[in-house]
């Protein structure tokens, strides 16, 4: 139990209650400065910042996943399109070099794990490449002309059968949905092309031509039935 107050205690308490609501005279206390020091570590601001960071991280992860999914999803379709949109190999078999890239593309088409249904050109119009180039240049030139010039040209220049013919022969792409097996069957029917860089020579050891020896060292098998000789 607290004893009754001394007069001094009462008087001191009363005097301190009368103190102004300011720092003591001569003090360098600055409430704003103290607040600035204290404010960053106050509770309330930190959780909001943490939540914001978490949201940003989640959004970034979602964006990365979406972009990678789109990339993986669209890439095979683009590959197939590039393969199917090529001019058919049968049309120019001798001019086209058969290299590793072409072989890889053929393998990609034959891959059983790829989609079963693919797009493929149906109507193939065999047009010589020189014709195609001329037609394209002509079409571009005509479309680039102003309308006035075209009208005057149509009146003055007699119509030649070559121009409409050329325009008519521009192949119009059409697509048909076929099964992958059909593609495979067609590919099997086609004459197969083999690489000629590596070969096996059978027969007696003869004199090699210098240029052949430089390109690839041949494997020579002797004509004998005994394997240890």
């Amino acid at each position: 139990m607290k004893q009754p107050d001394e007069p001094l205690d009462q008087w001191v308490r009363q005097a301190l209650n009368d103190l102004p609501d300011t720092p003591p005279p001569g003090s360098a206390f600055n409430a704003d400065q103290v607040w600035r020091q204290m404010h960053p570590s106050l509770p309330g601001a930190a959780p909001q910042r943490r939540v914001g960071t978490v949201w940003w991280l989640a959004a970034a992860c979602a964006a990365v996943l979406l972009i990678s999914w789109l990339y993986l999803e669209l890439e095979p379709a683009e590959k197939v399109a590039s393969v199917t949109n090529r001019p058919p190999a049968a049309s120019t078999p001798t001019n086209r070099p058969v290299g590793p890239l072409a072989l890889r593309q053929q393998t990609a088409v034959r891959d059983p794990s790829a989609k079963a249904v693919r797009e493929r050109t149906v109507r193939r119009v065999n047009v010589p490449e020189s014709n195609l180039v001329e037609q394209t240049e002509l079409t571009e030139a005509i479309t680039a002309m102003p309308a006035e010039t075209l009208r005057i040209a149509a009146k003055t220049i007699p119509s030649t059968p070559e121009v409409p013919k050329a325009l008519a022969t521009v192949p119009k792409r059409q697509f048909r949905v076929v099964h992958a097996n059909e593609l495979q069957a067609e590919d099997e029917k086609r004459p197969k092309l083999y690489q000629t860089e590596n070969f096996v020579r059978l027969g007696d050891e003869g004199e090699l031509r210098p240029d052949e020896g430089e390109i690839a060292k041949p494997l020579i098998l002797r004509l004998t039935n005994k394997p240890n000789q």
């Binding site: 609501d21 720092p23 003090s27 607040w35 309330g44």
Partner: peptide, 19 residues
């Protein structure tokens, strides 16, 4: 956790409590 309210409360009592 309103920072504005926290500042007001601090300003109201800072000098007195500093004493």
């Amino acid at each position: 956790g309103n920072a504005f309210a926290q500042k007001r409360l601090f300003d109201q009592y800072a000098n007195r409590l500093f004493r």
